Simulated assay, not measured.
Amino acid sequence: MLTKKKILITGVAGFIGSNLLEKFIEQDNTIVGLDNFSTGKPENIEPFLKSDHFTFIEGDIRNLEDCKKAVEGVDIIFHQAALGSVPRSINDPITSNAVNVSGFLNLLSVAKDEGVKRFIYAASSSTYGDHPDLPKEEDKIGKPLSPYAVTKYVNELYADVFSKTYGIETIGLRYFNVFGKRQDPFGAYAAVIPKFVISLLNGESPTINGDGETSRDFTYIDNVVHANEQAAITENQEAVNQVYNVAYGERISLNTLFALIQEFLGEFDENIQKIQPNYGPERTGDVRHSLASIEKANKLMGYNPQFNVRKGLENASKWYHDNLNIKSHS
């Protein structure tokens, strides 16, 4: 268990960052959080602001001084701050690069100067690009299919060079389609699961890109929190200065995904069971199928995810139903 450490979480007001905050604050850690609220939400951290164990800094990883302030005296960094989304990077590659590459380098450089013990960062399954093999294994990658994928691969290259050159311990976690509580269902770049959920809660037909047989290894947030904790506490020297897939190790199609979400939300409103999806064009830059091998993470750092997609969706659907004011953003 990760306990009694001083840790920095960047992107702390975001979906994954706020879930890490919630977990680690309960375990008697002292936490510094950094966020500029470009995609994160104040309400995600609001319950924790009164805690003596949490200090929030509103700042930007593109600003070196903000990074220096945040990193001071920290043992471990969980770097989640980034501009996600393949479509966003296609529309605005320059900003995606500024945040995801320059911001990453700022934080990594400051971490090295401050003597931070371990730097754990959000990598991405998009790094696999056009490599055809399934399941995805960490050492076999193809050419990136989007500016976003380029930025996340560059993160891995910088982390590798910094670990070899300066001795800082780095661990990259290639997230596969994470979902769960506090994931934003609104805005142009919302992920597929919360988009489906909000459409169904509104009594509307969601749009499935393509024929719906595109498949993904959807990963419940609690699995991701577990992976970050294992990365922080592992004492296996073979486990550091590596990248790992973080997933459940099963893939399901978008059509099956829709049916599962419909089943769980239908328990709250039977009219949801009658809604049929619309089908639209495929999304530019998307891969057809994705499935992770989680063997390396299991073997080297004891990653053992407990939530398959069905169990995760059951939890997530209840959270969305209980927490989303459906009409407030319509």
Rank of each mutant, 00 (worst) to 15 (best):
L2K: 02
K5H: 13
I7T: 04
I7N: 03
L8W: 05
I9H: 05
T10C: 05
G11R: 11
G11V: 01
G11W: 11
G11E: 05
I16L: 12
G17V: 08
S18K: 01
L21A: 01
E22M: 11
I25L: 14
V32N: 06
V32Y: 11
D35H: 03
N36I: 09
N36C: 06
G40V: 07
G40K: 02
F48E: 01
S51K: 13
D52R: 08
H53W: 07
T55S: 14
I57P: 01
E58F: 14
I61A: 03
D66S: 12
K68Q: 12
V71I: 12
V74D: 09
D75V: 08
I77L: 06
Q80C: 15
V86R: 01
I90G: 09
I90H: 10
N91L: 13
N97T: 15
G103A: 04
E114V: 03
E114A: 14
R118F: 11
F119P: 02
D130H: 06
H131E: 14
P132R: 06
D133W: 15
E137C: 13
I141E: 12
S146M: 05
V150Q: 12
T151E: 13
K152I: 05
Y153V: 13
V154E: 15
Y158C: 02
A159W: 06
V161N: 02
F162C: 08
T165M: 13
T165F: 13
I168L: 06
I168E: 09
E169D: 11
G172L: 02
Q183I: 03
F186D: 14
V192Q: 10
K195D: 00
K195F: 08
L200K: 00
E204Y: 06
S205V: 07
S205F: 05
I208L: 08
N209T: 08
N209Q: 14
D211E: 04
G212L: 00
F218C: 10
T219K: 01
Y220D: 13
N223E: 07
N223G: 03
V224C: 07
V225P: 07
N228A: 15
Q230H: 04
A239N: 09
N241Y: 02
Y248T: 05
G249Q: 10
I252V: 15
L254R: 00
L257S: 06
L257K: 15
Q262T: 12
L265V: 09
G266V: 04
F268V: 01
F268R: 00
E270I: 13
I275D: 03
G280H: 10
S290G: 12
L291V: 01
I294Q: 04
E295P: 04
K296L: 10
K296D: 10
K296P: 11
A297D: 08
K299H: 14
L300K: 10
F307H: 15
V309Q: 07
E314C: 07
N323W: 04
L324H: 03
N325R: 15
I326C: 12
S330H: 15
